[in-house]
Amino acid sequence: MQNTAKLTIDLNRPLLKDGPNFLSHTVIVADDLAHLKPTITAMLFCMVYIVVGSFLLILATYLLIVTTMYDLVIFVGGFGIAIATFGLSLIQPFLKRASFNKASGLFDNHRDRDVKLHHIISLHINNKIIQSKHAPNYHCYELNLLTEHGRRINILNHNNQQQLLQDAELLGDFLQVEVNDCRREITL
């Protein structure tokens, strides 16, 4: 029996559950290349973890040399490694720059399978509210692309609405595709 069920793509639905409460990336266009540039603020906050983790590792090393408190060395060192590793994992996405390259004809975000630029049919702006019981909730916005095969891939995800609208327009012009505003009213 032939499966006649139709697949529908909800373009109003955000792709990601979380998002930062700051501007994480901006779009930079130069000739045939458009790439996402991480903001310094975002990088600095990731650096806090790396600095704190490194400090604890140095402290653990110092304690290893001057004392015989091996349990403390393991505890401090363990925390240091965990925090520094966490910081490095946070900073990774900022270091790998997603790009739209007209020369190669590909969009590469170092995460998903590369997308051929001519397969991109539109860009969509979505909004969401990031909720937590133990932190203030805040608005966050996504810029997502849609391919002719129905794939949706996230490009930008941060809380600076104005910057995201500008970047969406810039990217739309660069890719020569329409930008659809799919923001909706969210009630809790």
Binding site: P20, N21, F45, V48, F86, Y138
Partner: peptide
């Protein structure tokens, strides 16, 4: 050390550390 980590979460608004903590 604790203040630096708290600073990163509450000033930086990093969602990741909050979700890791949760």
């Amino acid at each position: 050390v604790l203040a630096a980590l708290v600073f990163s979460v509450i000033v930086g608004g990093m969602p990741s550390i909050a979700s890791v903590t949760e």
